[in-house]
Computed example of a mutant assay.
Amino acid sequence: MRLIRTERLLLRAVDAADADALYAIYGDPETNRYNPHGPYPSLAHARRKLAAWMEGWDRYGFGCWAAALTETPGHVLGFGGLSCEDYGGIDRLNLGYRFAPAAWGQGLASEMGEQALRCAFGDLSAPTVSARVRPANLPSIRVLLRLGFGHHGMLRDIPAAPASLVYARHAPSPR
């Protein structure tokens, strides 16, 4: 799960060298249009987040991937994958993703999400994968629907902000 090739993407576990790319993507106001927390405020903040993601890989054996096109493996254009997240006091396996605006509209989030679901239901034998999305983030909602997620409720996860929509996808039934 640390290094995976899809049709167009190279997905690899994040490492300390990804700090600049992480800050470029998560520090961009455009990629935070629906995020009440706003962009990452500094490269130092991105480094702390990256360290936490790397710790997640060490602890759980899965986590956030750095995504690049297979023909340009040194150019990170997004981040995403699986994490353990708190959903109102309940830990859930969470799918998340964020790509640079230049990568939007190409189906890359769906391609990454499909691989994350294969890992979740295959390698991890997870019964369910959840995802949180802001109600106005229609592009992300469309990705989740394409991946077979269904609306599963609401979560008041950020004070003074509208509740997040919670989506869930259950493991396929054994044949």
Rank of each mutant, 00 (worst) to 15 (best):
A66M: 03
I90R: 13
G56C: 10
W104T: 07
L117R: 01
A102H: 10
L77P: 03
C64P: 10
A46S: 15
S110V: 04
E71T: 05
A51L: 11
V129R: 02
Y60L: 13
R59K: 10
E111F: 13
A46P: 12
D86T: 05
F121P: 05
M54E: 09
T128E: 11
G89E: 09
L124E: 07
Y87S: 01
L124I: 12
D91K: 10
C64H: 09
G107K: 14
P73W: 09
L43N: 15
T72H: 04
Y60G: 06
R92L: 12
S125K: 13
T70P: 08
M54G: 05
F79V: 12
A102D: 10
A44P: 05
T72K: 04
S110C: 10
R132W: 05
F79H: 06
R134A: 14
G113I: 01
V129Y: 00
S110M: 07
D91W: 13
W57E: 14
R92N: 07
V129Q: 00
R48A: 15
D86A: 05
A100Q: 09
G63V: 10
C84A: 12
R92S: 06
A131K: 06
W65Y: 08
A102L: 11
G88L: 04
N94S: 07
S83N: 12
Y60K: 09
A44M: 06
L50I: 02
A109Q: 00
V129K: 03
P101R: 12
R98K: 14
A52Y: 03
G113V: 03
R118I: 02
L93R: 04
A51G: 05
Q115K: 11
A46V: 03
W104I: 13
S130V: 05
K49A: 13
T70R: 15
D58F: 10
L43S: 13
G96N: 04
D58N: 13
G88P: 07
A46N: 07
R92M: 04
R47H: 11
L117E: 03
Y97V: 08
R98F: 04
V133T: 05
P101H: 02
G80V: 10
A116D: 09
A109T: 08
F99Q: 11
M112W: 06
G74N: 05
G105P: 00
G89C: 10
K49Y: 11
L43H: 15
G96R: 04
V76W: 01
F62G: 02
A51Q: 13
C64D: 06
V76E: 00
L108C: 07
C84S: 11
G113N: 03
T128G: 00
R134P: 03
F62R: 06
A100G: 04
C84M: 15
A120F: 04
A120I: 06
Y87V: 02
L93Y: 05
R134F: 03
C119P: 00
E111Y: 03
A109M: 01
G80N: 04
Y87A: 01
S42Q: 07
G88V: 11
K49I: 09
S42H: 11
E55G: 12
E71C: 01
H75Q: 15
V129S: 00
C84W: 14
G105K: 05
L82V: 01
Q106G: 00
S83C: 10
K49S: 14
K49M: 11
A68Y: 06
V76N: 01
L77G: 15
D58Q: 15
M54W: 02
F121Q: 03
A120R: 05
R134S: 14
V76A: 09
S83T: 13
S110R: 14
